[in-house]
Design a protein around this nucleic acid. Sequence first.
DNA 1: GCGGAGACCCTTTTT
DNA 2: GGGTCTCCGC
Length: 755
Amino acid sequence: MDVSRLIDPLNSAQRAAVCAPAGDVLVLAGAGSGKTRVLVHRIAWLIQVEGISPYGILAVTFTNKAAGEMRGRIEQLLGIPSHSMWVGTFHGIAHRLLRAHCREAGLPEGFQILDSDDQYRAVRRVMREIGLDESQWPPRQVQWYINARKDEGLRPEHLEDKGDIHLKHMIEVYRRYDALCRRSGLVDFAELLLRAHELWLQRSDVLAHYRQRFQHILVDEFQDTNGIQYAWLRLLAGQGTVEKTTLEDGPARRQHLFVVGDDDQSIYGWRGARVENIQQFPRDFPGTLTLRLEQNYRSTGNILAAANALIAHNSERLGKQLWTEGGDGEPIHLYAAFNELDEAHFVTDQIRLWVEQGGQRRECAILYRSNAQSRVFEDALIHAGMPYRVYGGLRFFERAEIKDALAYLRLLANRHDDAAFERVVNTPTRGVGERTLAAVREYARHHDVALWQAADAVIEEKSLAARAINALHGFTALIETMDADSRGLTLFDRVEHTVQVSGLIAHFGKDRSEKGRTRLENLEELTNAARQFVHDFEAATTLDSGPDVDGTASTSLDPLSEFLAHAALEAGETQGGAWEDCVQLMTLHSAKGLEFRQVFICGVEEGLFPHRRSAEEPGRLEEERRLCYVGMTRAMEKLTLAYAEVRRLHGEENYTQPSRFISELPSEHIEEVRLRGSVAQPMSSAYPGRTRTTGACGETAPDGLQLGQRVAHEKFGEGVVLGYEGQGRHARVHVNFEDAGSKWLVVEYARLTPL
DNA sequence: GCGGAGACCCTTTTT
DNA sequence: GGGTCTCCGC
């Protein structure tokens, strides 16, 4: 076997990690230091050199994307299918465990997963049932509260209100929501983790089994783990109280944890991630070998030096200095825009130059703090005729029409699924009104049964108007018929049948607009997804049927439930595979883990970045700084920071201050493309009185334009020059367009044609 | 039951 | 400014 293939491509620090002796290892891996490579090579090392069976390895990530990438690279490196190995997200693995041990975990066999939207609706429903004022207890906040408690491993019975009326009601909602989930056989994302943890705690036999099996546990992005994830890992890795009674006599652990993370890239504290876990790790696992990967293979010297200097302003760090063998590269560019439009024009123009010089659009990323900022860039890019792709937003399985179809499928799989029942009982409309539903809900609550049973009972009792009873019965009968008629069909046929018979196709088909057509296409795409899924699923299970030692963990579930779980756990890509060469637009958060030759970080202003809601608290400010660090270290060659002096946000125009992060960057790595205030002088001083800029025909504006002159613009059409501001390339003109209204445009980018 | 008008909110997001 | 949600009128 060829060990050199595993070792040769590594630097000495990477090699130390990959070849580390048995024991616990913490790898502090800086941005661009080859973190995934180390994980993948470590796995290969364990299998090929240490002779560990792939069945004894568990690799955990946070996103499906990361898991998929790891799988791909393992297969590439080892030339073996990775299906025999457990590689997945925390949630995916928890789900797999719970499927295999649903009885031990106290879950019904056909339990289904609730996504955040479903959860939100369920929480709201509970709140309405007990008549909680939604203005005082916003359902989002209550939902957030519940998830935060679950992430801490806390059930309602562990919580005390301590006389706080506000808390008291939230705990009450939590309690009722939990009851609803139990009754309906539903499990939300946080619940997956919590249940998996409770499974370890309560079933020492199950835990012992997996401790025996998984002696090598690898974790990616360890800085993002929350309380429950780390607790779960600790138990599995043999650290905890349970094993004394079950597995081992002495303190000797046979499990090895290999965790990789970067405290400087911890940007998810606000959703419960605990950087502290990374600091705590060596204390929890004495004898941990801590290694640092500091050589960066991504960015130029200037970018790294600036990023290092920025992050040095944080106090709570484990400490790391990135360095590169590469050259300094260009300095970081800093652009002071007049406003957000100018900022967008500037960026678009830079990308145009980049492309003219032979670069590709997909190598350029526009990063921003909040999604609301994307619109201006989209406008500018459309205007410039430049294809782009925005990350984030609704994903395939989150679309309304898809969720409707899935809700029907969920009811086929499990009649007790109240969330699904609520969603489609009257979609498409079939005359089940609010009054009827209220009666059903009331019955369900009173008798503590699922809505489905309540509906049956209400129909039986005939306590409502005949029309209502008929409508309700129409629904339950429809589901029963759909189930009976499609039972035994393949998943693909079943999905197709459901989409048709449910009336969803007819319903959305009535909408002749573009929107309606897209919805039909999406429903069609859902059946395709089902077909594809069966294909992949079969491939996976065939390969997986190898010597699975335990016999318990091979998940043999019906394809429908498996498909539904897949839909919830992997909500799909945001946008279909637009393989065109596109400029990449995304938030700084979603840029983590990616790299681009050219990066623009925009809106680097106080209040926006750092966000005003994070600026006061030191801890949150440090997280913002880490976010900036993450953004900067995405850039390979060229990094530009931009801010606007005036920004229109939420319809208000605001004068801004450059972000404090800018002043934290050493000036020797920075080149200012335009100095703040160097061109845009206050109108009052440059031109006494506003009248001067809004009239006086015949005066010469920059670029040979005349006040009062008619001009044409590619996008805005024709208009009249009303005024101007500043001189030179960055001067702006005020044009009143016939159709588009009045606009301030930067002459250089506006490309106005005199008429 | 649907569509329009008005109120309301507004950081980041994966599972 | 804009997207979402609710309410009200047809």
